[in-house]
Each structure stands twice: as structure tokens, then as C-alpha cells.
Design a protein around this nucleic acid. Structure first.
Lengths: 242, 242
DNA sequence: CGACCCATAATTGTCGACATTCAATGGCGA
DNA sequence: TCGCCATTGAATGTCGACAATTATGGGTCG
């Protein structure tokens, strides 16, 4: 387990708390543990298969094991942690097959989002989406993978929100969480950042032109492209060799 | 809260344990509580909005509050229970809008299942699906709504399993759980049982004929029909009047 | 030298108790 | 009579301790 203290970066933890829907649903102590462990998994500080000793975690946060166990259960329900009776909780490990499954579902659900967003987005919301894209363009131009990554996460979350189907949003948020670490790795590949920006711009234009079918198709294709990038990343190489 | 003792019907609890994926992941005590509460919600014994007092539940099962809290968290992650910090856990309450959201997603995901099942089902699995259908036909002919209902649940679970996408199956199982109570109510409407049987038979024929597109379309339409039945059921009448 | 087994240490699941917070009841005032 | 507020009771979240189970390491045997 990592030795870093309990001080996660502020901006990212806020986004994670949103994705986990922790805001009003848990005690601060549980949120703190879940955020630290969840961010650790996403950022790769905690590696797949690594033990998540509840005693050690409770010492790290100066609490008892009860809130720690609750936090780990929350992360389990989002697919980030594996809990089996009487065994130590572990960081969830994905097979390449599982990743392909997730992207297959994601591809089709994001297409639905594309249609819904095109139909429902107000002009104000279009302006907001464009502003987010502009920031992402700047991050990409500056080569700031980390900022672009989290901007991308926030953009998709905002789009699913505008789509107006809470159930759909919940599923996509959950799927997004499980693939965050992989997406981060794939974005770091040369050329991937620029390609992602181009995809997002085309998608936005389709939405702005109120062409729902095109937006759906582009989102679907962009998702496939993201999967391809993951398949070519270091992570997949390690998977296939293991 | 209901006053019935802790003795859920054996067959249905097994199916519920499968849907909740409780089998090897939790202690027996947690499974027992989660099964009893979950079945209670599905069968309508515990009503939407009703408080789930952890002290009372722990007394009912001669345990402490710890495993009860864990069971309620499991049910929360499946959308059957609502937990907010410092408030009493309650049975989740659905709005008609939320139900429509669920069926919108369900409709498109089941279409995916239809295509995958048609592609992947072996001849043996087709025989098994047909046998399940035969049993459901018999239940429907005998007017046994309850047996037909659980047979229908098991059939769809088996089909999603054959489809071979664990992620997709997990999502659909979760969505199915949230709508079980409504589906049960809608099946009790006059004529609905026969219509459902006819739908299922047509879907099976399409799969058997290896016509994936047709199977997807029929599954999608059958899902829409199920939503219509729910919208015309007592539950929806109560919703719109409230 | 490697595999198996047993004893020890560590970790889990559960419990009852406690302070804090919430909800419900009754009293007060308008 | 109705609405608001304080008080009381109940429920929650957390804690440290315990028995039961699992993981670890050393020792033995083939």
C-alpha cells in the first residue's frame, strides 16, 4: 500500500465525489476514506490486486474500522474494489475482456446520450459545453494530460446530465469510474490527446447543429477509438503478456 | 414495517440472491437480512418510503446492527433502499418519470442482448430456453402469476448470461431488481399474462432462426409493451393522483 | 531442492456501548 | 384553533474488544 499521507488533490477529489454521489449520502469520515482510496486506484497509486487492509486504513485516517469498511463497500459497488467474505478487500483487477465489455455497453449508451443531448440542450448549455471544450483545447495544446483528462471526465458527466436521464447518467458514471485509470493511461500516448480533442469538437458541432443521429454516431465512434487507444497502451501490453 | 417472521420463500430468495450476486461475497447473516428485506420490497410487503429501522431489523434477526447496516448498503447499491447520512434508511420510492428512464435504458440494452444471444446461443442452450418457456406457458395457462413472474425473471437472467457480456448482465440485473415490484403488478392485469407469453414466444423464435435484428427489435418492443402495462397499472394511477 | 504441513500472527466479522443527532411529542404563544 | 418551539425519546455513526478465520513463515518429509 502507498505511504502517501491523506491529502488528495482538491479539484479531482471533488469530481470523484460527484461521480460517487457521496455528497449528502455519507458521513465526512466515510467520504474522506472513499475519496482517498478511490483516487489512489484511479491515479494508479494503488495497484490492481493490492490488498486494502482495513486496520491500516483506519490508522491512516485516525478512525475505527467501521467507516473504513463502509467506504470500501461503496467503492465495491462502483466496481473499484473487490470484497469477498473473510478475505481481504483488494483493488479490483480488470481483464482486457472486461474492458471490452464495458466499452461495448458504453458505446451504445453514449450514443443514446448523444441523441438526448442534441434534443434537450438549451442555448445556454451549448455555450457552457463550448467553454469547457475551449479549456480542454488549451490543456491539450499545453500537453497537460492530467487537466485534459479531468476536463474530459467533467464534460461527459455534464453531457449525460443535460441528457436528462438520471438512470442513464448513473450507469455511465459507474462505467466511467471503472475505466478512469485506463483512460488516463491511453491519453498519455503520443497523438492521442490531439485525436481526442478533434473527436470532441466534431461531436459538439453535431450537437450544435441539432443533428442527433450524427452526434450519436460520432460519440459511438469516439468511444471505439478510445478503446483502441487503450488496447494499444502499456496496460494492455502487460495484460496480454501476463 | 411488516410483522412476518424471517422465513422467506425458498425458491424466490435463491433467485434474488443470484440477482444480488450475494452468493460468495457476503457472510450468511448479511445475506439473510438482505434477502428478507429485498424480497419484502419486491413483493410489496415493505412499501416505498417505509423506514428500515436498523435496531428493529437487528432484533428480528438476533444480530447486531453491523450486519444489518451492511445488508442495507448492499440493497442501496442496487437501488432498492435509500440511505442518507444521519437519516433512517428507507425503502426506495420511484416516480413514474424514473420508471420511464429505467425502461428507456432497458429497452436499448435488451436489444443488445437480443443480438448477442442470437449470435452466441448453442443448440443446447436453445433447448434450455425453450424448456423454460414451456414452463412459463404452463404457469400462464394456469393463471399462476407469481410462478410466471419469477420464471420470466429467471429467463431474462439466463438470456443475459448467454449473451456473454458480464458488464451488460450486471447492469440489466440491477435495473431488473428496481422494477420487479412494478412488473409483478403489471402482470396481474387482465390479458397481460397472455400478451407477455406471446411476446416471449416470438422472441424465442427469432433467436432460434438466428435472426438477431428481429430478436433485438422484438425485445425492444416487448420492453415498451411492459412499460405500457405498468403505466396502466394501479401503481401508476396512484402515482399520478399523488 | 521443492512441496507439504503445522504453529503463529494478523485480519476479518460481529458485538454491545457510547456520544451525537434526529424525530416526535407536548406546551406555549398568537 | 392553528402554528412554532423546546424537551424528551429514539436512532444513528463510531468505537474498542472479542472469537473465528485466514495468511504467513518455519520446519519437516519425500
Amino acid at each position: 500500500m502507498s505511504t502517501a499521507p491523506a491529502a488528495p488533490s482538491a479539484d479531482r477529489s471533488i469530481e470523484l465525489v460527484r461521480l460517487l454521489k457521496l455528497n449528502e449520502r455519507r458521513e465526512p469520515s466515510v467520504v474522506q476514506v472513499a475519496t482517498w482510496v478511490g483516487l489512489g486506484i484511479i491515479e494508479g497509486r494503488l495497484r490492481p490486486g493490492e490488498d486494502l487492509n482495513s486496520v491500516e486504513l483506519s490508522h491512516r485516517f485516525n478512525s475505527s474500522r467501521t467507516p473504513v469498511r463502509e467506504a470500501l463497500m461503496l467503492l465495491e459497488s462502483e466496481g473499484l474494489v473487490e470484497i469477498r467474505a473473510r478475505k481481504r478487500p483488494r483493488v479490483a483487477a480488470f481483464t482486457l475482456e472486461r474492458v471490452r465489455e464495458i466499452y461495448f455497453v458504453r458505446q451504445h449508451l453514449l450514443a443514446l446520450v448523444g441523441g438526448l443531448v442534441t434534443e434537450k440542450a438549451t442555448d445556454d448549455e451549448l455555450v457552457e459545453l463550448r467553454a469547457r471544450l475551449a479549456q480542454m483545447e488549451a490543456d491539450a495544446a499545453g500537453g497537460d494530460v492530467d487537466s485534459y483528462f479531468w476536463g474530459h471526465v467533467a464534460l461527459q458527466e455534464r453531457m449525460t446530465q443535460i441528457a436528462g436521464n438520471e438512470t442513464l447518467k448513473g450507469i455511465l458514471d459507474s462505467l466511467a469510474l471503472r475505466t478512469l485509470i485506463l483512460r488516463h493511461a491511453s491519453l498519455a500516448q503520443p497523438g492521442r490527446l490531439a485525436a481526442s480533442v478533434a473527436d470532441q469538437l466534431r461531436i459538439f458541432e453535431a450537437i450544435q447543429n441539432r443533428d442527433g443521429e450524427l452526434a450519436a454516431m460520432l460519440l459511438s465512434r469516439a468511444t471505439v477509438a478510445a478503446l483502441r487507444a487503450i488496447e494499444e497502451s502499456d496496460w494492455s501490453q502487460r495484460q496480454s503478456s501476463a
